[in-house]
Amino acid sequence: MKQQIIVSGIGGQGALFVTRVIAQAAVDQGIPVLTSETHGMAQRGGTVISTIKVGSFASPLIRTGQADVGLLLWENNLSVHRPLMKSDGVLVLNAAAAGEGIRLDASAIARKLGNAVLANLVLLGCAVRHNALFCDEQACIAAITRLAPERFVDQNLQAFAEGLHG
C-alpha cells in the first residue's frame, strides 16, 4: 500500500488538522506514514501545504507529478499545487464554481453547520465518499474522535458526515 496525498489551503483553514486525521488513520491501520506541514509566517492566511506519504517512504516531501490525491481547501491554490499531482491523480476541491476535479462547496455546508472552518472535514468526507483515499469512513471517524478536542468531536463528526453523504 502506497499513497501520496497533498492537503492544500490557506493558513487558518484547518489543513493541519485534516493532515493529522489522515495520518492517524494510517497509523491505526498499522501502515507507516510520514507527513510534512507548513508552520510559521505562512500560517497567517498565506498558502499552506501538507504532504502525507502512506506506506514505506523515507522522506515526507512529494516530487512533482507524484501525488495520488489532492485535497484543496482553497481553490486558488490549484495553479500553485497542480504540478505535484500525477496526471491521473484525484483532485477534491472546496469550490463553489464548476471546473476540474471533484468539487463541493464545503465552505457553504460548513457555514450551515455554524463554522466555516469545518469545511476541512466536509472535504475529507467527500474524498472518502469518492474512495479517493486509502482509508475508509470508520478509520476517519476513529481518528477524528481521537484527535479533536472533546467538546468539538460531535461537530467535527457531523461535518465529516455531511461530506460523506453528499
Binding site: 490557506i10 493558513g11 487558518g12 509566517m41 505562512a42 500560517q43 497567517r44 492566511g45 498565506g46 498558502t47 512533482t64 507529478g65 482553497w74 486558488n76 491554490n77 495553479s79 500553485v80 499545487h81 497542480r82 504540478p83
Partner: peptide
C-alpha cells in the same frame, strides 16, 4: 533529466489576521 517542473505562482501571501 526529469522534466523541469513548470513555474508556479507563489500563492496567497500571508497577512495579519
Amino acid at each position: 533529466q526529469p522534466q523541469a517542473p513548470p513555474p508556479t505562482p507563489r500563492g496567497q501571501r500571508p497577512s495579519l489576521c
